[in-house]
Write a protein that binds this DNA or RNA. Structure first.
Length: 523
DNA sequence: TTAGGGTTAG
């Protein structure tokens, strides 16, 4: 049976189970009966697993939970795995547990959590089937778990079908559904579910705020935020993030000040600080970013990967790559986001060699595998420094070796590198043979090379390929004609722009926002 | 111990 057939079969089974499950037979607590089956060998195994999960406090935690009840212990472990980076290990543990101890409702809840985290609908369907057979399937928490898994897998229509036939719904079921619609950008449906929710809570309202923000409707998001009967730290974080996402970083900073005034800032989580750092980055507010960093140090807040990469990115985008590197060097937890922030940060600041060295270091370490974003940094570094050979090697070989798919951004960097270094033919060949349709950024990268090397004929062809031609493209072409003293063509382009009323976009620059609007963090 | 907010490119 293929995986798809297997999936369909279990989906049918789930649906027939759901239709026929009727009233749930609660068995919570009953499972502990088999305690005696669990010998010391199992306790040893459990201890080993706990120690791996929590190397420092493992024994202590095990002592705290392990001796009460074996089922409780196994459930705790399943939950710990479900919340960890290896959620699939929950299923392995369940396979060993189920032969010794009858699972209870919590076991299934945690397994469904693991299915959601590993986005495994097949597992979720199977788990739901077993739970239904044991009489837990129609419990609202279990059903919510299944619903959540459908949402996490992006199957919104299927989620709706589950939602519609649920024998009982609570506020979390509505919240799940709203979040799902919001994720898919369907705020009309989300708002329909929101209106039908009998008792929306702070989670419901926050899901609406985040949903509108994600779609770019920051004003509607703000209206929901202001109308909320009660706000908690997550709602504030969602609203701050809404402004950051919609390129209004200064408003986000202002919101944090209001949060402080309402005395909510002391309970701010690392997510609040990440939001604050993102706002500083967006506003290019280096001084305020430094304040946030100092605050983190003062409060001895450990830098997790989110905080670390946000800090690195803030320093690099504000032109202080050295400070970014200091943060990077001091980080204990370096995940892909952290490496990418540093490699890209060095590349955009012109530290090409250092960026490429770091990329080699990352590959040598082999704990984190590069992805598309990493290669954007790599090509950017090659392009800024004019490292043609190295760029070619990475473009044609390393990307494949790492199992990474080439995306538009990679092509634009590579075309930029080749074209600027005078390999115009090779650059054009790449554009013409790309397996994905080149966008205007790619064509403009080629146009830039034509400018440097005064290739008028190619530039004329390239300009015609640009979909959304703007004044800059015509100005570039006219300057190119001027540089080879073809004054008639210069005049022709200028007249064309005038007739079509194509105006030059005025240049602009930005400065750091004034100190009186600075965020002052409470000590 | 079901549900909402966070990092890296463009």
């Amino acid at each position: 049976m293929t995986e798809e057939e297997e999936y369909k079969k279990s989906q049918n089974e789930v649906e027939s189970c759901m239709r026929g499950s009727g009233k749930s037979r609660e068995m919570d607590g009953g499972g502990v009966k088999s305690n005696s089956v669990l010998g010391s060998g199992w306790n040893g195994l459990a201890l080993g697993i706990v120690s791996t999960l929590w190397p420092d406090e493992g024994v202590e935690q095990w002592n705290a939970v392990g001796k009460e009840s074996s089922l409780h212990l196994f459930n705790s472990l399943i939950f710990a795995y479900a919340s960890s980076r290896q959620p699939h290990l929950s299923f392995l543990l369940f396979a060993t547990q189920t032969s010794l101890l009858p699972p209870n409702r919590l076991t299934f809840q945690f397994l469904l959590k693991a299915s959601s985290k590993s986005k495994s609908l097949l597992q979720a369907s199977q788990i739901h089937c077993i739970s239904t057979k044991l009489g837990f399937g129609s419990h609202v928490f279990v059903q919510n778990g299944l619903l959540h898994c459908y949402i996490m897998c992006g199957l919104f229509k299927d989620a709706r079908r589950v939602f519609d036939v649920m024998p009982e719904r609570d506020v979390a079921s509505f919240n799940c559904m709203i979040h799902g619609y919001a994720e898919s950008g369907d705020m009309d449906s989300a708002s329909g579910v929101f209106r039908s929710a009998p008792s929306p809570n702070v989670v419901t309202w926050t899901a609406m705020v985040a949903g509108y923000a994600r779609r770019g409707d920051v004003h509607i998001a703000r209206r929901f935020f202001e109308e909320m009967p009660h706000r908690d730290v997550v709602s504030w974080n969602a609203m701050m993030s809404a402004y950051v996402q919609n390129r209004r970083p200064v408003v986000a900073l202002g919101l944090f000040r209001r949060m402080q005034l309402e005395n909510l800032a002391p309970s701010s989580t690392s997510t609040t600080i990440v939001g604050l750092l993102l706002a500083c980055t967006g506003a290019r507010a280096l001084d305020q970013g430094k304040w946030v960093h100092a605050y983190l140090n003062k409060k001895r807040i450990r830098l997790n990967s989110y905080l670390g990469s946000a800090l690195i990115d803030m320093y690099c985008k504000c032109g202080a790559a050295e400070l970014g590197f200091q943060v990077f060097a001091g980080l204990v937890e370096k995940n892909l986001g952290v490496w990418n922030a540093m490699i890209n940060g060095l590349a955009i600041n012109g530290y090409s060699e250092r960026a490429l060295e770091l990329f080699d270091e990352m590959r040598m370490g082999a704990t984190v595998l590069p992805d598309e974003v990493t290669f954007v940094g790599v090509f950017l570094a090659c392009s800024h420094a004019g490292f043609v050979e190295e760029g070619r090697r990475h473009f044609h070989c390393t990307v494949k070796e790492c199992g990474v798919r080439l995306v538009l951004e990679h092509y634009s960097c590579m075309v930029d590198l080749l074209a600027r270094c005078g390999f115009l033919k090779e650059a054009e060949d790449i554009v013409r043979c790309m397996p994905i349709r080149p966008d205007d950024v790619v064509w403009r990268a080629l146009l830039g090379g034509c400018m440097v090397h005064k290739d008028v004929e190619l530039a004329e062809r390239v300009v015609l390929e640009i979909d959304a031609r703007c004044s800059g493209d015509y100005v570039l072409l006219s300057n190119l004609y001027a540089s080879v003293e073809r004054w008639n063509e210069v005049e022709r382009v200028r007249r064309f722009m005038k007739d079509k009323r194509i105006e030059k976009t005025p240049g602009c620059s930005s400065v750091e926002i004034e100190s009186d609007s600075r965020v002052h963090l409470k000590r």
